[in-house]
Write a protein that binds this DNA or RNA. Structure first.
Length: 709
RNA sequence: GGGCUCGUAGCUCAGUGGCAGAGCGCUUGCAUCACACGCAAGAAGUCGUUGGUUCAAAUCCAAUCGAGCCCACCA
C-alpha cells in the first residue's frame, strides 16, 4: 500500500479526477454499464453566456449533481443535459456596458455588426463558464451540450411560434406595452419592478371640473373627461357632451365620457385620460372607441403636441408645465405627499413609459388552463409545496405575454408585418410579400423574441423534439431544479409551452432553491461589493467543502447565508474522511477478501447500524431532503465511524487474535466503502480519490458503483 | 389591496404531537502511534407574545407583534 499524504489536498486532486470521469464517458447515459431500463433526466438550467459562475450557479450545480450521481448509482440511465442561454436582453445589457467602456453605443451600430460582436462575446463566455461548471464537479453529458441559438433549437422555436399563430394563440396587436426609454425596448409584465414613492399630486382646473394627476406632462392631448356613470355629483353632464375649455396651450373642446373604471372615492372622481401612456386610460379608450395620441417619444421626450415644451425630457418639463398652468390660474392645489407606485425597468431603474405599439403577444389563458388542471390533479410535485399555491394564483390571473423585444441580440421573430394595417403573420420561409388583409407591402419583422420564449421550450427543444431518439427516450424529464425566483419567468412557462407543444408535461417534479446570500444574510450585488465568487472558495477550501457548505442546513426554497467559516468546517470534514481512509487502508491487507469472514457480535452490530443509516439517508435522498442526508452522513462519518468504530477497532488490530482482527478489518473496510458511496453525491472528488486507492473494489470508478441500499 | 415565507443556543439553521438538536463560535485541558484541518471535557435556549385543542404543544388551531418576499392598471 502506497503512503498517502497526511492531509487531503483538493487542489492536487480535482482537475485530475474530473478529467478521469470525463474521459471515462460515463457522463453519457448511453455508455453506462449494465442494462438500465429506467431513465433519470435533468435538463440543466442553461447558464447565461455572458459572465462568470456565481454562487447561485454553484448551488444549482451542486443540488443537481447530487440528484444525478445518486440516480446514476442507483442504476438508472441518467442524463444531465447542459446548455447555455443567449439570454437576449440580459446579454445585450452586459455587452452595452462593454461598448460604453469603449466609448461606443449600440444605437450607432449596424444591427448585423452588433449581432456579430455579441455572438463572438458569448462564444468566448460559453467555454469560460462551462469550464467553471466542470470545476464544480458537475457530471453532465457534455456530448449533448446545447445552446439556445443552435440551428435546431431555433427551428423548434419557429415551429412553435407558427403553430401558436395558426391556433390563434399568438397575435400581433397594437396595445399598450411597458417601454424602457433607456434601453429602447418593450418588456413583459415580469420585467417590471414596482417601487413605492412619494410624489406631488396636482389638482388642475379642467373647465368646470377639477382633475387630479401625478403626471401633468402627459396632459397636453387630454380631450376626454371621464367620470363614473353613477356619480351623482356629475349627473348633469351627459356621456358624449362637448365642453369648451381653456387648457395648457389654449382653448380645446373636451368630451364627457362615462365609465365604470373611475373610482368615485379617488380625488374628485373625475379624470382626463392619456390612452397612449397609461394602461387604464388605454382600456377606457378602447371601450369607447376614443382617439389616442402619442405625447412622449421613445426616448422619453415630449413631442410637438407639447408646443413650447417639445423636445424636453419629462423631468425637466414637468415643473415648467406646472408653472405655466399656475400662471393661467389652472392649478387648484398641489399635494406634496402623494404615495403611489411607479413602475421601473428591472435593469436600469428608469421609469417605464407605457407606449402604444404593435407587438406580438401570446394568449395565455388557454395555455394556463391545462397546467392548472395538472396541478390540481397532483401531476406536478412542487418542492417546497407552497410554490404550488403561488403558481396557481399566478396562472389564474395570467395576462397575455408580450414576446417581442426591440433588441438585436435574440432569435429574430420569423414574421412579416404590414405597416398599413398593422397585420402580422409568421413567414418561416421568407416568401410572403403582400398583406393578405389589405394588399399592402409587407416588411420583415425586426423584433426578436423575449429570451424566455425560447428558454420556455428548452426541455423538449434541447432533447431534439419531435423526432430524435433522445426526445423519445428522455422526455418527459423527471426533475426541474432551479431558483424559486424564476418560477413565473421560466418554470411556469416551460410547463405551459411543454404541455401545449408535446402534449406532455416537461417534468413532474419542480425543486426550487432559494437565494444564496452573503454571510450576513444580505443579497449579493456588485454595487454592495459583497459578491462571493465560488471559484475563490473552491480554490481555498476545495469543491467538496464548498458543495457541503451549500447543502447542509439549506432547506428547499429558503435562502442561505453563505459563510466562509461554514465552508472551512467542511474542508476539515473532507480531511477527516481522508484520514479515516488512511487509517483503514494502512490497517487492512492488500488482498482483503470480498467474502465476509466470521464477524464478532459487536462488528455485526456496527454493520447493522451502518445499514440503517444508509437506509435513512436513501429515504432522505428519495424525498429531496439533501440537507438532512448530508448532515446525517457528516455525523455518522465523524462521530460514529471515526470516534467509535475506529477507536474500538484499535485493540483488535493490534491484538494477537487473528479471527478478531479479520473481523475488525472487514468491518472497517465495509464501513469505508459504504461511507464513500453514500458521500459520493455530496463530496464527489475526495470520495473518488480515496476509491481509486482501494485495493479491492467492484468498479473502475466510484461514480458508477452501486448505491448500498 | 391580496398572497406567501420566516421568528428555536452568540451566529447560521435542523426538528413539526411525547425528556430541547447540529455545525460554527466560545471556555478548559491535551503534541495520544489516522487526523492539531485533531482529541477530550464543558458552558450556553421560559423554541417571538397571548389564548385555545390535547393525558402531552417548539410542533396543531386562533389572535397578535416583528422580519422578509411576491402579486395588483386607482388617475
Amino acid at each position: 500500500m502506497k503512503e498517502l499524504p497526511k492531509a487531503y489536498d483538493a487542489k492536487q486532486v480535482e482537475d485530475r479526477i474530473y478529467k478521469l470521469w470525463e474521459e471515462s464517458g460515463f457522463f453519457n447515459p448511453d455508455n453506462l454499464p449494465g442494462d438500465r431500463k429506467e431513465t433519470f433526466t435533468i435538463i440543466m438550467p442553461p447558464t447565461n453566456a455572458n459572465g462568470d459562475l456565481h454562487a447561485g450557479h454553484g448551488l444549482v450545480m451542486t443540488i443537481e449533481d447530487i440528484m444525478v450521481r445518486f440516480n446514476r448509482m442507483r442504476g438508472k440511465k441518467t442524463l444531465w443535459l447542459p446548455g447555455n442561454d443567449h439570454a437576449g436582453f440580459e446579454t445585450q445589457v452586459v455587452y452595452e456596458k462593454v461598448l460604453e467602456k469603449q466609448g461606443r453605443s449600440r444605437f450607432d451600430m449596424a444591427p448585423e455588426d452588433l449581432y456579430k460582436e455579441i455572438w463572438d462575446f458569448t462564444q468566448n463566455n460559453r467555454s469560460h463558464i462551462n469550464s467553471q461548471v466542470r470545476s464544480m464537479g458537475a457530471s453532465c453529458d457534455w456530448s449533448r451540450e446545447k445552446f439556445t441559438l443552435d440551428k435546431d433549437i431555433i427551428e423548434t422555436v419557429y415551429n412553435t411560434f407558427e403553430k401558436l399563430f395558426k391556433e390563434g394563440l399568438v397575435y400581433r396587436g397594437k396595445r399598450i406595452v411597458s417601454w424602457c426609454p433607456k434601453h429602447q425596448t418593450s418588456f413583459s409584465d415580469l420585467e417590471i419592478i414596482d417601487e413605492e414613492r412619494l410624489d406631488k399630486f396636482y389638482y388642475l382646473k379642467y373647465g368646470p371640473f377639477v382633475i387630479g394627476t401625478a403626471r401633468p406632462e402627459t396632459k397636453f392631448g387630454d380631450k376626454y373627461v371621464v367620470m363614473h356613470p353613477a356619480d351623482k355629483r356629475y349627473k348633469q353632464y351627459a356621456d358624449g357632451q362637448k365642453i369648451e375649455l381653456e387648457w395648457i396651450n389654449g382653448p380645446i373642446t373636451a368630451t364627457v365620457v362615462k365609465d365604470e373604471a373611475v373610482d368615485m372615492e379617488f380625488g374628485t372622481g373625475v379624470m382626463t385620460i392619456t390612452p397612449w401612456h397609461d394602461a387604464t386610460d388605454f382600456d377606457i379608450a378602447e371601450r369607447h372607441g376614443l382617439e389616442k395620441e402619442q405625447i412622449i417619444d421613445g426616448q422619453g421626450k415630449l413631442l410637438p403636441i407639447a408646443g413650447e415644451f417639445a423636445g424636453m425630457k419629462i423631468a425637466e418639463a414637468r415643473p415648467k408645465i406646472v408653472e405655466k398652468l399656475a400662471s393661467k390660474g389652472l392649478v387648484e392645489k398641489i399635494d406634496d405627499n402623494y404615495k403611489h407606485t411607479v413602475r421601473l425597468c428591472y435593469k436600469c431603474n428608469s421609469v417605464i413609459e407605457p407606449q402604444v405599439k404593435s407587438q406580438w403577444f401570446v394568449k395565455m389563458k388557454p395555455l394556463a388552463e391545462p397546467i392548472i388542471k395538472a396541478i390540481e390533479r397532483k401531476e406536478i410535485k412542487y418542492i417546497p409545496e407552497h410554490y404550488e399555491k403561488i403558481t396557481l394564483h399566478w396562472l389564474h390571473n395570467i395576462i397575455d405575454w408580450n414576446i417581442s423585444r426591440q433588441i438585436v441580440w435574440g432569435i429574430p421573430i420569423p414574421a412579416k408585418v404590414c405597416d398599413a394595417c398593422e397585420k402580422g403573420l409568421p413567414d418561416l420561409e421568407n416568401k410572403i410579400s403582400k398583406c393578405p388583409e389589405c394588399g399592402g407591402e409587407l416588411r420583415k419583422e425586426t423584433d426578436t423574441f423575449d429570451t424566455w420564449f425560447s428558454s420556455g421550450q428548452w426541455p423538449f427543444a434541447a432533447l431534439g423534439y419531435p423526432d430524435s431518439k433522445d426526445f423519445k427516450e428522455f422526455y418527459p424529464t423527471q426533475v426541474m431544479e432551479t431558483a424559486g425566483e424564476i418560477i413565473f419567468f421560466w418554470v411556469s412557462r416551460m410547463l405551459m409551452l411543454g404541455k401545449w407543444v408535446t402534449g406532455q408535461l416537461p417534468f413532474n417534479t419542480v425543486y426550487l432553491h432559494g437565494l444564496v446570500l452573503d454571510a450576513k444574510g444580505k443579497k449579493m450585488s456588485k454595487s454592495k461589493g459583497n459578491v462571493i465568487n465560488p471559484l475563490d472558495l473552491t480554490a481555498k477550501y476545495g469543491t467538496d467543502a464548498f458543495r457541503m457548505g451549500l447543502i447542509v442546513g439549506n432547506t428547499p426554497g429558503t435562502s442561505l447565508a453563505l459563510s466562509e467559516d461554514k465552508i472551512k468546517a467542511y474542508k476539515h470534514f473532507a480531511n477527516k474522511l481522508w484520514n479515516i481512509a488512511r487509517f483503514v487502508l494502512s490497517n487492512i491487507e492488500e488482498n482483503i477478501s470480498k467474502e465476509q469472514p466470521e464477524l464478532l457480535p459487536q462488528h455485526q452490530e456496527i454493520l447493522q447500524k451502518l445499514h440503517e443509516t444508509a437506509k435513512e439517508v436513501t429515504d432522505d435522498m428519495e424525498n429531496y431532503r439533501f440537507y438532512l442526508a448530508a448532515e446525517k452522513l457528516y455525523h455518522y462519518t465523524w462521530h460514529t465511524f471515526a470516534d467509535i468504530i475506529i477507536e474500538d477497532s484499535k485493540p483488535f488490530l493490534q491484538g494477537k487474535d487473528t479471527a478478531a482482527k479479520q473481523s475488525a478489518q472487514w468491518t472497517l473496510y465495509q464501513a469505508l466503502t459504504t461511507t464513500l458511496k453514500l458521500l459520493h453525491p455530496f463530496c464527489p472528488f475526495v470520495t473518488e480519490e480515496i476509491y481509486q486507492q482501494l485495493p479491492v473494489k467492484e468498479e473502475k470508478f466510484l461514480m458508477i458503483e452501486q448505491w448500498p441500499v
